[in-house]
């Protein structure tokens, strides 16, 4: 009989371990706490994680319990979760978010994009105030390449006679500002090669090794200045303005919203680049960087 008891005990232990180690809370529990728990999420992007941490820590400092669901994935993965109410707050970027909900949008400049975004957001969500901080998708080339072909704008790429390959995340291949957009708006043909590091070190290396000539790197990435890369200008508006903006569910109350808006107003593009630089150069965890910044800005 012993082995049976052993097996039963194992099964029981399994159930206990499973339930005890649950890491996801599907629904918001507005229980007997005086303050409800907010679920703060982030993209699978270290910069986004830092911003999410600033939101989370500010809320915690104000007495709200916060559950973190960081590094969920790309927009296509986490937006459905916030739409379904599983996440309450996530830092987003105005342009790409608008294009996700309204692919055909013609808005390009920051205010127009923000206004349209407020309309385009689904029923049970809203966007809080946008931040002056921008983190733009951008087409980037090496200084050497730009000098060789005399490139300042994306349109100049048409002058290049050698075959062009674009490097970027998988989802960039089918997004409106990918190879399709390059062809439609600028008449430039590019091949696409996937590099799954979000414009990170592999992408930079690929550019420098000339494995790709063109890459999608975000403007808040410290590697642009560090490696003397050139951001090509975008006169035709392939890329929409991309300001940091918090997307919030209905559960975020006014007090919380005010706190978050304060953070947004203090963060500028330069601040964001500096935060990112701390992550990449000093290799600090997002929580530490967020805490230091919030303290320095007297936000907590």
């Amino acid at each position: 009989m012993k082995p049976r008891i052993f097996a039963a005990a194992l099964s029981a232990a399994t159930v206990i371990v499973l339930s005890g180690c649950s890491t996801s809370a599907p629904l918001n529990t507005a229980g007997t706490n005086s303050k409800e728990t907010f679920v703060v999420g982030s993209q699978d992007y270290y910069s986004n994680e830092i911003i999410a941490e600033t939101y989370a820590q500010a809320l915690e400092a104000a007495g709200y319990p916060v559950e973190r669901q960081l590094r969920i994935g790309q927009r296509e993965a986490y937006l459905p979760e916030i739409e379904a109410g599983q996440i309450d707050l996530v830092p987003e970027y105005t342009g790409p978010a608008l294009q996700h909900w309204q692919p055909g949008t013609t808005a390009r400049l920051a205010d127009a994009v923000y206004a349209d975004l407020q309309e385009a957001v689904p029923e049970n969500l809203r966007v809080l105030e946008q931040s002056p901080a921008t983190d733009q998708d951008a087409y980037v080339v090496t200084r050497e390449f730009a000098d060789r072909w005399n490139l300042t704008t994306i349109a100049d790429l048409a002058k290049v006679t050698e075959p062009l390959t674009l490097g970027g995340n998988s989802e960039g291949e089918t997004r409106p500002n990918g190879p399709r957009g390059l062809k439609d708006k600028y008449g430039v043909d590019v091949a696409f090669t996937p590099i799954e590091d979000g414009g990170g070190p592999l992408t930079v290396k690929a550019l420098q090794d000339n494995d790709v000539q063109l890459a999608i790197i975000y403007t808040a990435d410290p590697s642009i200045q560090k490696n003397d890369l050139v951001v090509l200008q975008d006169p035709e508006g392939l890329f929409l303005a991309s300001n940091v903006v918090p997307v919030a569910s209905d559960d975020i109350n006014d007090e919380a919203a005010t706190l978050i808006n304060k953070i947004s107003s203090v963060m500028t593009a330069k601040e964001l680049i500096a935060l990112n630089a701390r992550s990449v150069d000093e290799k600090l965890p997002a929580a530490t960087i967020a805490k230091d910044w919030l303290t320095a800005k007297s936000l907590i």
Binding site: T23, Y45, Y46, R71, A77, E196, G200, S279, V280
Partner: peptide, 22 residues
């Protein structure tokens, strides 16, 4: 790769930030 936390998160984060030790 699908957002489930584990030691693999050290791979994806280290990959993005270029931190080999991670």
């Amino acid at each position: 790769l699908v957002g489930i936390s584990s030691l693999g998160t050290l791979f994806t984060d280290g990959f993005q930030r270029g931190i080999v030790e991670e």
